[in-house]
């Protein structure tokens, strides 16, 4: 996939964020873009260099900073998402390459102005809230692509319903193939990208969309 269709996805990969990351990946693919996430790479590579490679390979990026907080009381907050967001914005700002200067990013948080309490420097960027709700997250991502591309895209309702249809079609097939609920709940995000990539074109063709 080319630079112009790649979207760098910067978000947590833990179980708590799964209910948002799955519809996010689905939406990016449904809109005919290619998500690049760190989870897909082998652990043999140095993580930061792989992140930088993905940032440079992607015209677009989606950064979710809604989880930059301590997992447990007394722990330090997680800084990976803001750090990678900084790398992405820096790449666009300081690069001498005309291609990289075209980069654009969407910043997601769970509440509208929460970022002002801990990272107010990003105030001029495109920051949208999702309220930890998958349907709203899909709406924000679709709205953002519509705005920056200035073209007609499938509605958020169509994408959300397609996502539900994906589960309706796929989950019971997986269970017939002897995947347990626990197996399904622990599929990797690269597994989901494979499944979405096969299912979405067939779904769209069947509906003539």
């Amino acid at each position: 996939m080319s630079f112009k269709r790649n979207v760098f996805i910067n978000c947590p990969f833990d179980d708590a964020y799964r209910s948002l990351l799955q519809p996010l990946l689905f939406t990016v693919l449904y809109l005919d873009f290619n998500p690049l996430i760190s989870e897909t790479e082998s652990s043999g590579n140095v993580r930061v260099s792989e992140i930088i490679r993905r940032i440079k390979d992607s015209k677009y990026a989606i950064h979710d900073i809604s989880r930059n907080e301590a997992l447990n009381p007394g722990d330090l907050p997680r800084f990976n998402m803001p750090y990678e967001m900084g790398l992405d914005i820096g790449c666009q700002t300081f690069s001498g390459s005309e291609k990289l200067k075209q980069k654009q990013c969407l910043i997601l948080d769970r509440e509208k102005y929460r970022y002002q309490r801990f990272i107010s420097d990003i105030a001029g960027q495109d920051i949208k809230d999702h309220n930890d709700t998958p349907e709203i997250l899909i709406k924000r991502v679709r709205e953002w692509f519509t705005t920056i591309l200035n073209i007609h895209l499938p509605s958020p309702t169509e994408i959300w319903e397609a996502y539900g249809e994906f589960w309706a079609d796929t989950e019971e097939k997986l269970k017939r193939m002897r995947f347990t609920t626990d197996d399904i709940n622990h599929l990797t995000f690269s597994d989901f990208i494979l499944l979405f990539n096969e299912w979405i074109p067939n779904y769209k063709a069947a509906r003539g969309v």
Binding site: T170, K173, L187, D191, E198, W199, N202, Y203
Partner: peptide, 15 residues
């Protein structure tokens, strides 16, 4: 942990 292969994804993706 079970993984999804490209072939498996293809068969599941068929409506």
């Amino acid at each position: 942990k079970k993984k999804i292969t490209k072939q498996l994804a293809k068969s599941i993706g068929r409506l």
